[in-house]
């Protein structure tokens, strides 16, 4: 066993997993309050990356005056803000009129929104992949053994952990978080107790979209190129992560994301040893999804729930 190789693969997998985790949170939160899969969430992730690209382009003259981490932070926060607004607008225009309709109707609308976002971006920005600027000076840090980690990977992991901690704070310690939990637990009771359902739903969409935007920026930072259809696969894999962890469960989404990121990387890295061609990478998440739905539909951390009549 080559430990250095394994450690390296784990580091690579962990940073990919962090991105899946951030996207998965959006799926899980929206599912928690509205009980539907926001199919367009992966495209919000893509918009986040594009927002980062353009914010960086517009503010470039200003960035000469400040250190790297500050300008990167500004790009990150502005993109998160932009996506939060987009998320809220999408909910108000497309999903809100459908609150009482069947899940299928909402799903189709979500597919429509997804297509609109990706083809709209293609129209505005072109289909060809675009290079993403280096937001922070990227250096390779040598760890013990022949393992290396880049500054970007460190930043992604640290910021993801910070975002997860603040999300936990919002959900557990604030009034808005309480309202979100109440709505998720029992919408009728929550609204009878004076919870402003619309405000909570908007807030949830905003929060989820902001996290997706952060994931988009991190993805673009690590992999340098972005295109209008980059959101489809990570979006679906993140959904699988949310299901794996137990949909509606915030800790579960984070766990599921990290697991999928790790598994995917290990399958590719050890494809020769386990006899699976690396091309099967994209199938990993789906196989997990099918297995989990067949054997433990509630997910790793979720509690099982019967569909009520």
């Amino acid at each position: 066993m080559d430990w250095a190789n394994l450690t390296q693969q784990l580091i690579n997998g962990l940073s990919l997993g962090a991105i899946y985790a951030l996207i998965a949170l959006g799926y899980t939160m929206v599912y928690g309050v509205l009980r539907f899969i926001n199919f367009a969430h992966g495209d919000v992730f893509m918009i986040g990356a594009f927002a980062g690209l353009y914010v960086h382009r517009w503010l470039k003259p200003l960035f000469h005056w400040m250190p790297d981490f500050l300008s990167a932070l500004i790009v990150l926060l502005l993109s998160m803000l932009i996506c939060a607004v987009i998320g809220i607008v999408i909910e108000k225009l497309a999903y809100k009129p459908l609150r009482q309709r069947s899940r299928l109707t909402v799903l189709i609308t979500a597919i429509g929104v997804s297509l609109l976002l990706s083809y709209g971006t293609q129209l505005v920005c072109g289909a060809a992949p675009k290079g993403f600027p280096q937001l922070i000076k990227n250096e390779t840090l040598d760890l013990p053994g022949v393992v290396s980690m880049t500054t970007e990977q460190v930043v992604v992991l640290v910021v993801t952990v910070l975002l997860l901690i603040s999300l936990r704070f919002i959900v557990q310690k604030t009034r808005m978080g309480l309202a979100m939990r109440a709505l998720s637990n029992n919408p009728t009771a929550a609204s009878l107790m004076g919870v402003n359902t619309d405000a909570v739903i908007s807030f949830t969409f905003g929060l989820g979209s902001a996290l997706a935007a952060a994931a988009g920026i991190f993805f673009a930072m690590l992999y340098q190129a972005i295109d209008p259809f980059m959101g489809i696969l990570p979006g679906i894999k993140a959904f699988v992560a949310a299901v794996l962890g137990g949909i509606g469960n915030i800790a579960g989404a984070a766990l599921g994301g990290v697991l999928i990121g790790l598994l995917e990387t290990l399958v590719v890295g050890y494809s020769k040893n386990i006899g699976i061609p690396p091309g099967f990478r994209d199938a990993v998440a789906f196989v997990i999804l099918i297995l989990i739905l067949m054997f433990k539909p509630a997910g790793l951390l979720g509690k099982s729930e019967r569909e009520k009549v």
Binding site: N5, Q9, N12, T265, V268, P277
Partner: peptide, 20 residues
């Protein structure tokens, strides 16, 4: 011998194996 699919953005797993 490693492979990827166009559209992939993450090649670190393959490259790590190659490095070895």
């Amino acid at each position: 011998e490693q492979s990827y699919s166009s559209g992939d953005k993450d090649f670190k797993a393959q490259l790590t194996s190659i490095r070895g």
